[in-house]
Design a protein around this nucleic acid. Structure first.
Length: 266
DNA sequence: ATGCCCGAGCGACTCGGA
């Protein structure tokens, strides 16, 4: 079985590439982030034509997450329990950033972790709280069933290690997000709770990334970030036989700024 | 060549991304 996660940065703008990628990648499950649409303009046919069931959670042109599967798609959950809201003053909104489904015996979560925007911005405590609540649930899921096969996949908007950005000195000097100690602590809290990054051992750095900005020739200049991850529960991690980052998909006209991340299971 | 930002909604500009 092969599962993948990919921030497509608009599913409609990327429809042809996503369909072609599904056809050649041979994945059984694809967790998608940033569909950037509501159900009424979601490209349902794309997945049906490729032989996948799909569940989508999209509330506006922002965010949006989905799971496509050809090994079953059961018990779909939109948002995790108690998922924090964000809103200016009086109108907090629960954003479309998490969808879960059971596919071929694996509980898959497609996660689009909030962007903190800047250290000191209100979005940063929102991001950290969002991750903390998710982590508390992840701990409960494991306590309820230590043998559960759970995959927390998606765009985490965190670079956990110095080698996960092209120039750590620049990031720290300028006080950029993604590398700050609180963000990294939020990520490591999942690892301390028993969830393992199952991709890094098969794709060691430095210089291995999943995201490259569209601007300033970032991709050809190898100015990227590793911010998309698949974290696996112990029972799932034990099944992992390989993993890869499909940086070929970042090439050419009409590419997403993120590359797909693939995990192979025995 | 992988090549100097892109997508969505609105309405011809603004916001969000990281």
């Amino acid at each position: 079985m092969k599962i993948a996660t990919w921030n497509v940065n608009s599913l409609r703008a990327r429809a042809d590439r996503v369909e072609a990628w599904l056809d050649r990648s041979d994945v059984d499950v694809l967790a998608i982030q940033e569909t950037k649409c509501k159900d009424n303009n979601f490209p349902w046919d794309l997945f049906e034509n490729s032989g996948y069931e799909v569940a989508h959670f999209g509330l506006s042109q922002w965010n949006g997450v989905a799971i496509a599967s050809r090994v079953g798609l059961d018990d779909v959950e939109r948002t995790f329990p108690g998922q924090p809201t964000f809103g200016k003053d009086t109108d907090p909104v629960q954003e479309a950033r998490a969808i879960g489904a059971t596919c071929g015996g694996v509980r898959i979560w497609s996660l689009y972790v909030p962007n903190g925007r800047a250290l000191g911005d209100p979005h940063m405590p929102y991001k950290l709280h969002w991750l903390d609540v998710l982590k508390e649930h992840a701990v409960e899921w494991l306590q309820a069933d230590p043998h559960a096969q759970i995959a927390l996949t998606g765009d985490w908007n965190i670079a956990p290690q110095d080698e996960d950005v092209w120039d750590i000195d620049l990031f720290q000097r300028e006080g950029y997000t993604h590398v700050s100690p609180p963000e990294r602590a939020a990520f490591h809290a999942f690892e301390n709770s028993g969830f393992t990054d199952v991709v890094r051992p098969h794709t060691p750095g430095p210089g291995v990334y999943t995201y490259w900005d569209y601007k300033q020739l970032s991709f050809p200049k190898k100015m990227g970030m590793r911010i998309d991850f698949a974290l696996a529960s112990p029972a799932l991690a034990a099944r992992v036989t390989g993993a890869s980052i499909d940086r070929e998909e970042r090439k050419g006209k009409g590419a997403s700024d993120h590359a797909p991340v693939i995990v192979e299971l025995a």
